[in-house]
Write a protein that binds this DNA or RNA. Structure first.
Lengths: 247, 247
DNA sequence: ACAAAAGTGTTTTTTATACACCCATGC
DNA sequence: GCATGGGTGTATAAAAAACACTTTTGT
């Protein structure tokens, strides 16, 4: 406050409320079980700020639309997915995070509510919209991203690592039927090699009783064929809210 | 899409972007060690929507202000606190969550980014602003709350319960110096009686080595006097990211 | 036949749980 | 001196970690 002599209109502008547009940006993960790679869905921007750069799939929230509705809408525009896990991630709302904001701080601010999503690669058909600027990127070969999307993506990645430890999100990215080593590979690619020994991981999970053996065997090149398992959500129910079932 | 004959302006309104005001609402917890009660800070609304009702302390974000800045500003307006833990909680942004939104969905939407905060009761002096409509409420004697603040509060309460299990947030609400039974009581009041036996809880925590005994004894009525302990943040460092240290 | 991947079992070490018991103080 | 809360120790059960070994396939 620069003193009582200043005119009312010269008062710090900071007391004016900011006007916002609200965007929704999705961090959508999947996994390539064959190549043991964690994937994230990126789109090539075809409009102006950062035109031609890769970014997280996002949109601005429309009138009458909830945040979650908007998140689902972007998703539906980019992929046709049967299964889908979606939860809110974090809200990024500092000033000057979007170049569309005017310099003088009088125009609209752009706030981003990020969402975290998981889909099965096989069940997710990418919708090539025109120039087909949409692709699954391996997490270890990321391009430069528009806006602060790299920060958002890292936030989502951390969430994924945490959720793997205590919640059954792995079965949202794995195919419906998977082998125990598919499951183990997923955990090692996301969490690193040294989280557990394969045989211990295996027997621990089997003892819990929510993985049911279909009896079907599948052979991947050399070696003994593996059993295909299925996640039994009902049998998992008692483990909800119980910490650290998976590690 | 109602067909290609409709004029541009008659197009579904839903494609119009929503305009937002963004609010910040804080769920501020503290604990009364003497009476073993978990407290939440509430304020009596003195302006129009829900005037006279209790609500979480909140404000609308101003020009040039970040979300976190706004969260700190509300806090600074309500309490003078030495210590303070603050983190983002969740964003509530559905349409019709604020009565100030106009019926026809053309005016501004009101979005709330909620924050989760912890303060030490003794170090937090409440700022009586005029009518002094500000108070610590025990979590088991909550009044009716304005807006969707009850939902937000429950979300914050769940976050507190989770964080107690794997992060040292307890030491953000306890006094600087505390007895081991203060700590135990906090855990039982928030988590329920049956999370652990006192003597096991005690020896487990002491073995970890980040609680340092000050040697000072304090007597609370009858019984043997207890040692005052202090949380040693440096000694805790190696336990960061390691799951479930406290339970 | 042998390498490669799947699956089983055993041993050792560590941690959790349930108590029984001793200690210092107020009344 | 005894009730009250603080503090220590031990015996048992359970789980985690390490790793040796068997089974079944492709080549």
């Amino acid at each position: 406050m620069s003193g009582r002599l200043s005119k009312k209109l010269a008062d710090p502008v900071s007391h004016q409320l900011a006007d916002f547009k609200v965007g929704v940006d999705n961090v959508i993960f999947s996994v390539d079980t064959d190549q043991h790679r964690l994937l994230v869905l990126l789109v090539l921007r075809d409009t102006d700020p950062y035109l031609g750069q890769w970014s997280l799939p996002g949109t601005l929230v429309r009138q009458g639309e909830s945040l979650e509705d908007a998140a689902y809408r972007v998703l539906a525009e980019k992929i046709r997915a049967n299964n889908l896990y979606l939860e809110q991630l974090y809200t990024f709302g500092g000033p000057r995070r979007d170049p569309r904001e005017s310099e003088d701080s009088y125009g609209d601010r752009y706030l981003s509510v990020s969402y975290f999503a998981l889909v099965r690669l096989m069940e997710a058909e990418l919708i090539a919209d025109g120039v087909s600027g949409i692709a699954w990127y391996p997490m270890n070969q990321l391009p430069h991203l528009a806006f602060d999307h790299h920060e958002i993506l890292q936030y989502g990645y951390r969430r994924l690592r945490n959720k793997l430890e205590y919640s059954p999100v792995a079965f949202e990215v794995l195919p419906e039927l998977f082998t125990l080593s598919d499951l183990y590979q997923l955990y090692t690619t996301v969490l690193g090699e040294n989280f557990s020994d394969y045989s211990n991981f295996r027997s621990r999970l089997l003892k819990l009783g929510f993985l049911s053996d279909t009896g079907v065997k599948v052979s991947r090149g050399a070696g003994r064929p593996a059993s295909l398992y299925r996640f039994d959500a009902d049998a998992f129910a008692p483990f909800k809210d119980k910490p650290l079932v998976f590690i």
